[in-house]
Design a protein around this nucleic acid. Structure first.
Lengths: 336, 336
DNA sequence: CAGTCAAAATGAAACGATTCATTTTAAGCT
DNA sequence: AGCTTAAAATGAATCGTTTCATTTTGACTG
């Protein structure tokens, strides 16, 4: 069955294709009678615009691309929600790409979005993709970095100060009187992990009696956290840290699950635990989890807003770096 | 800056556009020397295929549409993951649409996908959209219903037997000796809610001494669960149920948070609690949550598989209804 | 009634990749 | 050299929408 085109509609309504297009896009330029007639025919034939043809003509699509590390992480679904809300205000759709911390997948999504001529790209970048992004920009596709600041101000970005966040978390643990801290996180290819650790190091450096060990994980997931937690359990009690800062809440929840498997270990009595992101499930954990809160929905909303302004402003737009400050949320897992 | 097209590449490489297209799509039909020369020019000019033009010519896009109730629900992100995996095997992308239990948004996504001429649609339907889906099918776009069976076998579907699941949950609570059950869930426009409740009713009907009350919620979220839980707290102790079956884990977690606010109420001692979906966070809850497990990733994978087979099979494809059986997972929240 | 002018309608051209019937090239054989 | 054939390359036509320079319509004026 051949699909219905504007030509078919025009023929059936006894008008030209130009008029059909005008009814669709500028009904005020067409006499009311004609509008009604054409719309009736559209309904009757079941005509639906072909978006590919529109895009071809327009030169760009009406979608934004959003590339995140992990859609299973509530932090990113919240962020995506904010982005979607802002995009919808301008009639744009959001295409969601999930890299799973994999550089190849990141490249694949960038290729896809480039072929689709998306309206703009929001990305929480992984690999060294400055050149890719410059190419996109040369084609007129604005880009905003999410959850990451650029050193050189060549891109707009919306981020949270992860160094400050890491510092907050470690300072809090130290203020409880803990002295043998452990940072659980990884891999180091993720900038957020590195920054949160640096922040923690800053706080630790201010106290000569406090040590910080690093327990590396190969992902930021509940599973990876559980593995890290189990690794702590097999150690001699005196050799264990008395406070753990996990690079995100998923890890923290995993660590908590592992620690809880032994009845004799108690959080926070024996080991205090703090996560990062303050996802909705943190408050509902076995031991309600202290965390560092980021305004996830707002980050997504702001990022799209910035993207659209950049798209408007054209080449001479002054790139803008927006940085939100994180916030400490204290719950039972670090009660004194 | 004008964008680079196959014409520019052809001119620069001294070949025809047809040859450039062949290099892109059927390199074996072109002599090795020419392939190399054209690819060199492509790299040099930074040519990127325009997907809109390809789609226009091809008549359909290389994406699938997936419409779900709530991307913030881990059940659906797991399902989406499975769908993405299977789609990637055939070089297809997945567009994710989030309805938030809103019929208007569901319609908007269907419009969008129809205009995009997507390869196929996976949908967990809300409103009465049989006609819309028939129109899609008439255009040659196959549709598979996810997490929902059709009564009339006119569509393929992949679902879990929610009535059996509801029954399992209630039977389990009854087997603990509980007699005043409450079902927390809503709204009734969501079929999963209705089925899980029916299943529970079946189990309750087998025991004359057991009662079942229904506490309606206006969403399947942690927040709605918390509200429902608070509503139980204000009642007189003797008036409270001794077991709660929540329509999904998000609700259950919310209920749990509310009940825990009172130090004197203990789960499961005073009130046993079971959820549904067995999301990753269920095991990590304050009181590890019993739940009904669904093979979420597999559901998504299977749904896309079915969709692709239906696309292959053409009009005469026998619609297939696949039903998975749910599984009871017992944890501390219903320990006896 | 001729003349003016805005509103309405027209239809060819353009967007960029793919297809396929045709032509060109080059290798192999007598 | 002449002939056959397969491989390689060609380029016009096509997909469906939008745009815009042009034409048509019809209402109104002096």
């Amino acid at each position: 069955m051949a699909s219905i085109s504007v030509n078919d509609v025009a023929a059936a309504a006894g008008v030209s294709v130009g008029t059909v297009s005008n009814v669709l896009n500028r009904p005020d330029k067409v006499s009311p009678g004609t509008v009604a007639r054409v719309q009736a025919v559209i309904a009757e034939l079941g005509f639906v615009r072909n978006d590919a043809a529109r895009q071809l003509r327009a030169g760009r699509s009406r979608s934004l691309g959003l590339i995140v590390l992990d859609v299973a992480n509530p932090f990113f679904t919240d962020l995506a929600r904010g982005a979607e809300d802002r995009a919808a205000e301008d009639g744009l759709a959001v295409l969601l790409g999930n890299t799973d911390d994999n550089v190849a997948r990141e490249a694949a999504y960038l290729d896809l979005f480039e072929e689709q001529r998306v309206h703009g790209v929001l990305i929480s970048p992984l690999g060294d993709i400055g050149e890719r992004l410059n190419r996109l920009r040369a084609r007129g596709t604005p880009t905003v970095l999410v959850d990451r600041q650029t050193e050189d101000r060549s891109f707009s970005s919306v981020a949270v100060d992860d160094i400050a966040g890491g510092r907050l978390a470690a300072q809090h643990l130290i203020s409880l009187g803990r002295t043998r801290l452990a940072f659980v996180g990884g891999p180091n290819s993720i900038r957020q992990v590195v920054d949160r650790l640096s922040g923690a190091r800053l706080a630790v450096a201010e106290h000569s009696s406090v040590s910080l060990e690093v327990v590396d994980t190969d992902a930021l997931s509940v599973l990876a956290g559980r593995a890290a937690g189990q690794q702590m359990l097999v150690r001699a009690p005196g050799d264990r840290p008395d406070a753990i800062f996990a690079a995100n809440d998923l890890l923290a929840i995993g660590v908590l699950q592992a620690l809880n498997m032994r009845g004799d270990l108690h959080v926070p009595r024996d080991i205090a635990l703090i996560g990062y992101d303050d996802i909705a499930f943190a408050a509902a954990a076995v031991v309600p989890l202290s965390s560092i809160r980021q305004p996830s929905v707002l980050i997504g909303y702001t990022a799209v807003d910035l993207l659209l302004r950049e798209a408007q402003g054209g080449d001479e737009f002054e790139h803008e770096q927006i940085v939100f400050q994180p916030e400490l949320v204290i719950r039972e897992s670090t009660a004194s």
